[in-house]
């Protein structure tokens, strides 16, 4: 295996989501990790891609985002059409 060529960065970045979702075959996953062991740029891409997902989730749906009170005019508008 050590003599086989490394996967190119295009393959790593193209199939990153499958890697993170655990959808790669065991052989493919090993090839991924072999590349990551020698490519700091792909490691940085992987980590920042993962952080992007976490940031999106945290800033739009996190437990620390308060839910505002419902605007009374909106509630009245909805009730006027459904009641």
């Amino acid at each position: 295996m050590a003599d086989r060529p490394y996967l190119p960065c295009t393959e790593i970045i193209g199939f990153l989501a499958d890697y993170l979702d655990g959808e790669l075959s065991p052989e493919r996953k090993l090839e991924f990790e072999r590349h990551l062991a020698v490519c700091p740029s792909c490691v940085a891409y992987l980590e920042t891609y993962r952080e992007t997902i976490r940031m999106a989730r945290a800033t739009t749906n996190g437990p620390r985002i308060p839910i505002d009170d419902a605007p009374e005019d909106l509630i009245r508008a909805i009730l006027s059409v459904v009641k």
């Binding site: 190119p8 960065c9 393959e11 952080e51």
Partner: peptide, 25 residues
């Protein structure tokens, strides 16, 4: 989307971030 060289390497190397979801919050 990221750009690649003909040999398949990233055209511009990626770098780590100093911020995390926790620090952003």
């Amino acid at each position: 989307l990221p750009k690649f060289l003909e040999d398949g390497h990233q055209a511009e190397p990626s770098a780590p971030w100093c911020e995390t979801a926790e620090t952003v919050l």
